[in-house]
């Protein structure tokens, strides 16, 4: 059995504790040593690898759909302007940055803005145009705050730094690849590859077949123009006979 009885208090001791609390309050008011960050006025300094909002470079995008295809949260919708570009729904995005990692040309990059604060669900759906810039955030103090323990005196130290938001361009490490057909003898002539290619690099067209001078019938011709191909691999995924691949080019 547990018995809970009323705590007996010593009035003298009680008064002493009150005085102590008031003393601490006065001290904090004059010279505070708290560990909380006054968000949004200031923000914490995050490690370099911390993943933030995604920034998109329209010039580099080759409309390969890889980001949309890999996104595990289905947060990327391709939108059609002159080509297809990715838009991101931050209501769904889980910040895994698979899309950033999978982009073959470095068109998607991370930023150091992590403030996922929106007023409505609709606002969270950002179009390709809206993600070309780092979202602007207004902070009174453009400072980051970091806390660490100073081991010489064993005290918690608060360090302020200027908030740097620019991110170096993403190094593109992908090898150059171009579409190639491994087994044209199996081509159905279905033109699915040609219709999916954003570069119009593949031609599957009706042609005349002739032996010598004489036209003997109609046929189909499959052509890949490697100088137009960006190596996006869309056609490879599309081919029902799986006869297209990406071949590495260059040295």
């Amino acid at each position: 059995m547990i018995r809970l009885s009323k705590v007996k208090t010593d009035p003298v001791e009680n008064l002493k504790r009150h005085a102590e609390a008031i003393g601490e309050a006065v001290k904090q008011a004059i010279k505070p040593d708290r560990v909380t960050v006054e968000y949004p006025r200031e923000r914490r300094k995050y490690p370099e690898c911390f993943r933030g909002f995604i920034v998109f470079d329209k010039e580099k995008c080759i409309s390969c759909f890889r980001c949309a295809q890999i996104c595990p949260a289905n947060a990327i919708q391709m939108e059609y302007f002159d080509k297809a570009y990715p838009g991101i729904d931050y209501a769904k995005c889980i910040f895994c940055h698979f899309c950033v990692d999978s982009c073959p040309t470095g068109a998607l990059n991370t930023s150091k803005v992590h403030d996922v604060a929106f007023k409505s669900m609709d606002e969270m759906r950002l179009s390709a145009k809206q993600i070309t810039k780092v979202p602007e955030i207004v902070r009174e103090e453009k400072q980051t705050v970091e806390y660490y323990v100073d081991r010489n005196v064993w005290k918690l130290v608060r360090k302020k730094e200027l908030d740097r938001l620019e991110v170096p361009p993403k190094p593109v490490k992908v090898k150059e690849r171009r579409a190639a057909c491994t087994e044209p003898e199996s081509c159905l002539g279905c033109r699915l590859c040609a219709s999916v290619c954003p570069q119009n690099a593949i031609k599957v067209e009706k042609c005349e077949i002739s032996i010598g001078e004489e036209v003997t019938g109609t046929g189909c011709v499959l052509q890949i123009q490697t100088d137009l191909c960006t190596g996006c691999g869309l056609c490879v995924r599309q081919c029902p006979m799986q006869i297209l691949t990406l071949e590495e080019v260059g040295e």
Partner: peptide
């Protein structure tokens, strides 16, 4: 052009 292939229909 890397490769061109013709077949009859």
């Amino acid at each position: 052009i890397t490769r061109e292939w013709q077949f009859a229909l």
